[in-house]
Amino acid sequence: MNIYAIESENDVIGARHFIRDLVKEKGFGLIDQTRLTTITSELVRNIVLYAGKGQVLAYDVMNGSTNGIKIEFKDSGPGIQDIEQAMQDGYTTKGGLGAGLPGSKRLSDEFYIESESGKGTKITVIKWLKA
C-alpha cells in the first residue's frame, strides 16, 4: 500500500505524479496512465475544494490472474449530500464544471462512492491491467 497526503492545492500536481509513477511501474499503458492521472487530478481537486485535506491510498489488487490497482480518495470533509445528483454531468456546488465525478467514473473500470454527511467521503477507483 502506498499513501499520499493531501494538504493544499499544490498537492493536486503532487498526487498526480505519485499515481502516474505507480501505474507506470505497474505496467499500465500510456492511455490508462493518462486516465488514472486525470482521475487523480479531478478527485484530489475535489478534496482540496470541499474538504481541504485528505489522503490518496493505492493498493495492488488481483482478480483471478488479472492484476490491477485500487485507489482510494479519502477525506473527512462535509460529505456529499446527494450522491445521485453529484454523479450527474454538469452538477456542481462549488462553481466547478461538474465533470469531475461522472467523468472520473467513465475513466475507471470500477467506481464506488461512500459518503456520510458531516463525516467525509471515500471514493474508490479500480483499473485492471489489460493483458
Binding site: 492511455i31 486525470t38 454531468d89 465533470a99 475513466l107
Partner: peptide, 13 residues
C-alpha cells in the same frame, strides 16, 4: 496527444 484526446472525451469535456 491521442491519450489526452481520449481522456477529454471520456471526461465529457
Amino acid at each position: 496527444s491521442p491519450a489526452v484526446s481520449i481522456t477529454l472525451v471520456e471526461l465529457g469535456l
